[in-house]
Design a protein around this nucleic acid. Sequence first.
DNA 1: CATTATCTTTGGACCGCTCCAAAATTTCAA
DNA 2: TTGAAATTTTGGAGCGGTCCAAAGATAATG
Lengths: 337, 337
Amino acid sequence: MNSPIKRPTIREVAAEAGVSKSLVSLVFSSPQSVSEKRRNKVLKAAEKLGYAPNFLARSLAADSGTFIAILVADLHNPLFAEIADQIRIRLEKEGRYYFITSAMIRNQAGLPFLDKQTLKSIIDLRPESLLVIGSIPKIELLESLPKKLPIIIASGIPTGISRASTVRTNEEIGLRLVVDHLVEFGHKNIVHLAGSKPGVAKDRISGYEKAMRENGLESFIRVVNSKSDDENSGYEEMWKLIKSDNPPTAIACFNDLHAIGAQAATIEAGIEISIVGYDNTYLSGLNQINLTSVDPGNREIADKCADLLLQDDFVQNKLHFATPTLVTRASTKRISK
Amino acid sequence: MNSPIKRPTIREVAAEAGVSKSLVSLVFSSPQSVSEKRRNKVLKAAEKLGYAPNFLARSLAADSGTFIAILVADLHNPLFAEIADQIRIRLEKEGRYYFITSAMIRNQAGLPFLDKQTLKSIIDLRPESLLVIGSIPKIELLESLPKKLPIIIASGIPTGISRASTVRTNEEIGLRLVVDHLVEFGHKNIVHLAGSKPGVAKDRISGYEKAMRENGLESFIRVVNSKSDDENSGYEEMWKLIKSDNPPTAIACFNDLHAIGAQAATIEAGIEISIVGYDNTYLSGLNQINLTSVDPGNREIADKCADLLLQDDFVQNKLHFATPTLVTRASTKRISK
DNA sequence: CATTATCTTTGGACCGCTCCAAAATTTCAA
DNA sequence: TTGAAATTTTGGAGCGGTCCAAAGATAATG
């Protein structure tokens, strides 16, 4: 029983098929340049012996592996898990190898910080391309990566790293949807609770400001900054607002986690403030939470990422937008004049 | 700018230090067997050139790498992220390399399934040990792994794979805490919503049954099975119970996700049923949810895992228990006689 | 049919490291 | 001081692949 896991090598397959090891190698790297006759012989032999290429050897020899590295910024954020799942399904279907890894760690206090080794070690593996899901601090890190490594950023920092292509929701439209919805419900005093990391957060801020202006609410523009992008931050900042001398009637949050934290604060305070999230994660759909939230078009984002990952000729520095939609739920209420 | 990422090799360091490449290799694998004089020379040269060992080459040559593989069963479950974070903090502190990866994918319908490639590919990397966080379907898979590979399972399947050591909460105590608490609140008709995967779920079931019996509630014992361990499953099963001709007054759920789904159902139904979760994830602490939940002692579990991972002589087939505690919140109410 | 162009196949060097047996050096006891 | 034992250091042979120049086989051309 318990097979010794001594996997056959390319040379054994070659012997079995009666060809050279180089031929076997070719069959597994560029099969089209091998005659059909031999290809079949090799494939049969490989099948018989249960051969599968060795990752390590391949990466070492070619100085580039045959797998995709997926870096999830933060395991704590369900949005990322959802996007990751979508993409992984596609990759599995295509039979592509990939590694999924996470860059952020949360300390005892729940504060996220960057795990420096992770990025380093995944790059050591020489992936053929890198997919970053979400925003990681210190984008400069990405700049220092091998130049030929294609980088795709899903739902993360839009600018700042020229070599990467980015797929994300159209933040401006997203925030316009939010503001318009709130305005329609009679709100004027609408605060935006902004994200903590530059990129996306900045775009949402300007989307918010623009939408406010277009609704003639220029004088109500108020942006609150946050320490991190999680529920604790939302909770804290919301409390500050509640205790301020001018609490808003509605708040447009950077993401669902923020919103959930903010909602927790309003419940605790026994005060009613309309809250909108962003990401439409599974949490927002729960009856306990029932959060109006912007659906960023995750499906579309994931599909586009997978397309980019799967296509051969990768174009750097392109921006792809998914169209967000607003999912209204009970957390936003018509203002009682 | 943009360094060409041509990393120096062991040979270049050797040349710089005026020693053989083997010596350099030794310095980085068993430094104690190298004279101090040369060791310093090598270290200095390595420092000067910015040398760092190459993962791939090392794993390939030694048929075993110098890193730990962490397999998170399900990215969707915050419990796992929390445990993973704890462990990663320790590993980072010790300067140990590791890879974190996830085994489960959720399809469009939110149903989890096993990503077969993941386990395979991480093993291809020849980690020195494997840490599995949570329960994965098909534990048999683990049996087929290289025999010398130490396996540690955190908070997952307790039995079934003899070669692994397991660190988990004491399920029996956990469920006793739950049942005792509910009984104290006057509940009798207490249902247990069980987990979907064998291992842990089974132990919680027997813990529940035992506690019920000890409280003289043998005749009330009722275990409901679930399709998966997430909120959807909890929601579905709870609805079935609500619509049955004998809805319980309290439900002890397999985990927080189950409980949250169940809670969503009771809210929708406008019915009051006490709900208890398990795992005490950040979700249960949210004001919107406010779930009484068993804290499995994650800190303890994570610490123990890290200890095991970090120690040299690994003992197979050991079981380590963390002591759970009950965190009571608003989701459980004294029964109104 | 000879010659050239094109397509396949092959052996060998190499990727960066570990491991091992042998060589070189140091240590120790007689 | 000397030989044996113990400790360090070293070169070379892999690990399992890729890649490339050259060889062989096939197809196309005049």
